[in-house]
Simulated assay, not measured.
Amino acid sequence: MLHKGDNFTTKLAHRIRSHIRKTCKIWNLYGPAEATLGSTYYLIPSTSDQPNVPIGQPFPNYRCLIVDEFSQPVILGEEGELLIGGVGVFAGYLGRDDLTKNVLLNIDDDLFYKTGDIVRLDSHRRLHYLRRKDHQIKLRGQRIELGEIEGCILGASSFVTACVVILWSKEYLVAYVQSDSTNAKLLRESCEARLPLFMVPSLFIVLAQLPLNPNGKVDRKRLPSPDFFGLLAQTEVANDRPTNEIEEEVHGLWCKVLGQDTGHISISVSFYSIGGHSLLLVQLYHRYQLLFDFDTSASTIAPFLRQTTIAEHAKIIGTIKSFDRKTKRWQSFNVNTGMTNNLNFLPEKY
């Protein structure tokens, strides 16, 4: 049995094996159309503990090179862009010399195709596909590999069979997940445990089937638009409203920062799960400082980054206010005591 066309996981291989004869062998093939479809191959063992299946080694009469951003060869284990040379490399795009010039290289009198795929070579000389080169984005000053997020989501549950992460409106990371038995909360918790906060998607959309194009690839143009306002409406729970004055004030600030002046937000929902991100949280922190009259000496932004619900923020602020009141009482006591002691030592003529 031959597999080709998308990243192949060990989990998927095990699922396939459960439906075929034990004597049937599964091969993972890799290769772009510009290199006549098949360029590398790998025989998948019946037992494997690695999450992703390698793309293997080149077919006879093919060559594979891995280069860095400066077109220099990388060392063993280091990632880089895969170049394919050999008998199957195409001559160019018909009538598009401009595109051809960008993807074909002449190295030692051999023609190589720049795949745009990031790979690495392991100690057994097997190639591992990592991600697309053009799937790196920059969000709020941070460089993010979308493939790293997708890999984290795929590893979060055995029921997740496909995933694609996109940058929505240049502001939010949105994850589209194909599964019939998982939920957004589980996926978010897994991502928060394994990824930096700025890489955790703002929204997880779970679908029974991701839309595909005629070639069997995910059709990104047909993915449903994320509905952040609908998500906010879903968080409205009758018994999950603010229960004290601080929670009321925190809730009001959340609505303003998130652009929901007339809405309601559950006090137990995560700031990041309803369209919030790190820059908005910085704004929220400064609003807390102004409204509740404290500075960074009383509390840094760190606890607000770790605890991300209205109830948790209100509890942090309540602790700050309590500590501030005790400090002021202690300072007042010291001043009063000092004044009394000083009066005791005044000369008698006074």
Rank of each mutant, 00 (worst) to 15 (best):
L121S: 01
R15W: 04
D68M: 12
N28Q: 08
D295N: 07
R306G: 14
F304D: 04
S46T: 15
V103G: 09
A184V: 08
C191H: 00
R125E: 11
V200A: 13
E34P: 04
R126N: 14
I265K: 01
V269R: 07
G259M: 02
S39N: 07
N341M: 12
I149H: 01
T340L: 14
W168R: 10
G216R: 08
L104M: 10
D293Q: 04
P224N: 03
D227K: 14
R126G: 01
I274E: 11
L130K: 05
F228H: 06
P58A: 05
F229I: 15
S123G: 01
H135M: 02
E34A: 12
R222H: 13
S297A: 06
T100Y: 12
G216H: 05
L127F: 04
V87K: 05
S268R: 15
V335F: 02
I44W: 11
V269K: 06
Y285R: 11
S268D: 15
R96D: 00
K170N: 10
L37G: 06
S169Y: 10
I274M: 08
L305D: 10
D49C: 01
F198D: 10
A193H: 01
T115W: 11
H135L: 02
W168F: 15
K114R: 03
V269H: 07
I166C: 14
D180K: 12
K349N: 06
L127S: 06
N102H: 03
V250M: 00
T340A: 11
P214N: 13
V119N: 06
T308M: 05
S322F: 12
P45R: 08
E248L: 12
I246C: 05
A13Y: 12
W27T: 14
G116F: 00
L284C: 07
L105M: 12
R188M: 10
P51R: 11
G216D: 04
S297P: 07
C64P: 07
D134E: 08
T337I: 15
K326R: 11
P60C: 07
V218I: 15
V165Y: 00
N183G: 05
H264N: 02
L343V: 11
L29V: 08
L197N: 04
R306D: 15
L279F: 04
L195A: 01
V67K: 09
Y129T: 09
R325Y: 00
I144L: 07
L258V: 01
I246E: 03
D68S: 02
C255V: 02
F271T: 08
D108E: 02
F229Y: 14
S158K: 13
N102D: 06
P303N: 04
G147A: 07
H251R: 10
E148L: 07
H286E: 14
F59E: 14
P214A: 00
L105Y: 09
F345V: 02
P347C: 05
F159Y: 09
N7K: 13
